[in-house]
């Protein structure tokens, strides 16, 4: 499907870019990729839940069980790494 080929083309760069844009729009503040979103009070635990749902919908992944840790959502970098790892697991090598 077209949507799948679009999302599987996601790289660290595109995910980071998209997330920074999403955060800028939703919390009306520009953040740095390494910035701790929780300790700076920029996002509440409620917004962190919305981030889970956003990542799942935007990248067609399921974030469940041990992956659902607050630390995975602490920075744009950690969320990017999580998305890449789950997309890899979801998309075994050789699957064209």
């Amino acid at each position: 499907m077209t949507a799948e080929s679009t999302t599987s083309a996601a790289t660290a760069e595109t995910i980071r870019h998209e997330l920074l844009g999403f955060l800028a729009e939703r919390i009306k503040t520009t953040v740095e990729p390494e910035q701790d979103l929780f300790s700076s009070g920029l996002v509440s635990s409620m917004f962190a839940m919305q981030l889970v749902v956003h990542l799942e919908e935007a990248y067609d992944i399921a974030i469940v069980g041990p992956d659902l840790k607050l630390d995975s959502f602490r920075t744009v970098e950690s969320m990017t790494a999580l998305v890449l790892r789950l997309k890899d697991a979801d998309d075994p090598a050789g699957d064209a």
Partner: peptide, 15 residues
């Protein structure tokens, strides 16, 4: 109740 699942996990609960 997905939000509650996430709330538990974010609070540090595990399986």
């Amino acid at each position: 109740n997905r939000m509650m699942d996430i709330a538990y996990r974010f609070a540090g609960f595990t399986g």
